[in-house]
Structure formats: C-alpha cells, structure tokens
C-alpha cells in the first residue's frame, strides 16, 4: 500500500532533496574548507519491506551514521547513513586518516560522522519544514556503526509499530578528488507520506 509516487510527487521530494542538500553542502564546505558539489538527489524508496536492500552491497556490509527522533507536526525517525567506503572518504578528507575496521573506530572518527550526519539530517529536516510549514524538532542524534541490515532494521523497529512507508533520498557528493554517497531516511510515525503531500496540495 505504497502512496503512488507520481511525477509531481517525485518532483516535490526531489525538491526537498535539493533544498536540504544545498544547505548541507554549503555547511559542509564551510566546515571543511573543501568545495563539495553534488549530483541531483535520487528519490529511492517508499516501502519499508525493501529498506534492508537500500544503501548496501550486501546486508552485512558496514554502514555508519546517526538517527534522531523528530517531534513536532510530522513526528518520526530521521537518519543519515553512509556506506563504510563513503565514510572512509569523509574521514580521509576531514582528518586525513581512516580506521582499518570497526574495532578501530575511536571517538574522533565517531564525532566526524556525527557532525556530518547531523548537518545533513538537520538540513533535510529544515527543507521539509520549509516546504510544508511543519514545525519539526530534532532530538540529539545517536550514532551507530554496524552491519547495514542490523542498523536499518533497528531504525525500522524504533520508528515502526505497523510502519509501512518512508522517504529515502540518495545523493552523491563530489570533491575534485573524491566521491561519496549518503542516504537520508525519514520514517514518519503516521506510517505514510500522505500528510506531506496533503499539505503540499498534490
């Protein structure tokens, strides 16, 4: 029972992506002094049953990122996740080194991802807020690094209790030397995106 994602709706979601990422990339460039450009974000998924296959090559490949409870007029769970390889690119850019594996993931590495994920998450939520007029409050995000499917299913169950639909936007960032990907997820408590489309009148 997925909300029909017609062209108009896809465009609206892409626009949220554009606004959110525009802000995020500016913030990120300011933070790092590196100039990032981005590809047009891709609206990826609309159904939680296929979520586990999102953003991972295999279910056991690693992802890192943050998840945050969102309160206000459209409550739910927001998350921003990086596949491990993309996180490594970020670490290389920001702290000029990379962890060799999960066991090597110290506080510095965690705080880098925390910081970047929070910026992304915050900007996406702000974009939603800006387009819809919904007031949204983000709680302090929590960090996770583990098997993709374990992280995604944990976000799922925390949001869910009968949850069916979510908003997922994939985007690729570029610097002159690097490319990396990140995923914004929003799992509204209502279980679908209708409230978003209603307020947008589409």
């Amino acid at each position: 029972m997925t909300t029909a994602l017609n062209e108009l709706r896809t465009d609206a979601l892409r626009e949220i992506g554009n606004i959110g990422l525009g802000g995020a990339v500016t913030a990120l460039s300011d933070l790092t002094g590196v100039l990032f450009t981005l590809e047009a974000p891709q609206v990826m998924q609309m159904d939680t049953s296929t979520l586990p296959s999102l953003c991972c090559v295999s279910p056991e490949s690693l992802v890192v990122g943050t998840v945050s409870r969102v309160n206000g007029e459209w409550p739910g769970e927001g998350a921003f996740l990086f596949p491990w390889q993309s996180a490594c690119v970020l670490w290389q850019i920001l702290v000029q080194m990379q962890p060799s594996g999960l066991e090597d993931l110290n506080e510095l590495y965690q705080s880098v991802i925390n910081e970047v994920s929070n910026i992304m998450l915050g900007n996406y939520l702000q974009a939603i807020s800006q387009m819809t007029g919904f007031t949204l409050y983000m709680e302090p995000p929590a960090f996770a690094a583990d098997m993709a499917i374990a992280v995604l299913s944990s976000i799922l169950v925390e949001a869910l209790y009968g949850q069916r639909e979510l908003l997922a936007i994939e985007t690729a960032f570029r610097t002159p030397e690097h490319e990396f990907r990140g995923y914004f997820l929003y799992l509204p408590e209502t279980g679908n995106l209708e409230k978003l489309f209603d307020v947008l009148g589409i």
Partner: peptide, 10 residues
C-alpha cells in the same frame, strides 16, 4: 537484542 545506537536520548 543489541542496542546499536549509542547515547540514544529517548
């Protein structure tokens, strides 16, 4: 039954 998210506020 693990808790993957560190310092989950709620």
């Amino acid at each position: 039954g693990g808790e993957l998210f560190h310092n989950r506020s709620q």
